[in-house]
Simulated assay, not measured.
Amino acid sequence: MHEGDEQLLRGRIYGHDHDDPDPGPRSGRTYAELVGGPLDGLLLDIHGWRTVEVDDGVTLIIELGRWPGGRALYDPRPGEARKPGPGIACRLYYSGDTP
């Protein structure tokens, strides 16, 4: 990934259009910060997700990774604390990718 691509992604919500006039977090929503890999720095909207859904990790479609149109895998670290309520509640860490 090029440096310009990384800058474009920072502070944005996964799944929002790159030309969204307000790509940042929304008030009252809950997010997981994506750490490492092709989606590093993006936020994933997990508002309304059950704890077990976050604990299972996520598989997200990517266009900037090793396989365009493939999937990036992000998982929580066992025992890492979560913050309840709106805002950034947890981090999910890159664990690999798949076509």
Rank of each mutant, 00 (worst) to 15 (best):
A32R: 02
D5W: 12
Y93M: 12
E33K: 05
T51Y: 00
I61M: 10
E6T: 07
G69Y: 01
H18M: 15
A81E: 14
L73C: 04
G85F: 06
L92P: 05
P38G: 15
I88K: 07
P25R: 13
G57S: 06
I46M: 07
S27E: 13
G70N: 01
D22K: 05
E3Y: 05
V35Q: 00
D5S: 12
Y31E: 04
W67V: 08
M1G: 11
L44P: 06
E63N: 14
P84V: 07
D20L: 05
W49H: 09
C90E: 02
T59P: 10
S27W: 06
H2I: 11
G85N: 01
Y31Q: 03
D22W: 01
D20I: 11
V54Q: 06
L60R: 13
I88L: 10
P78Y: 09
H47S: 15
D17L: 13
G37F: 07
L44C: 05
R12A: 13
P23N: 08
L73V: 13
Y31H: 01
E3D: 12
A89L: 04
R77G: 03
D45Q: 06
T98C: 12
P78S: 12
D40N: 15
G11Q: 09
G96V: 00
S95L: 05
G36V: 15
Y93C: 09
P21C: 10
D22I: 00
G36P: 03
E3S: 11
A89W: 01
L34A: 00
R50H: 10
K83H: 13
P76W: 09
R12G: 15
L60M: 11
A32Q: 03
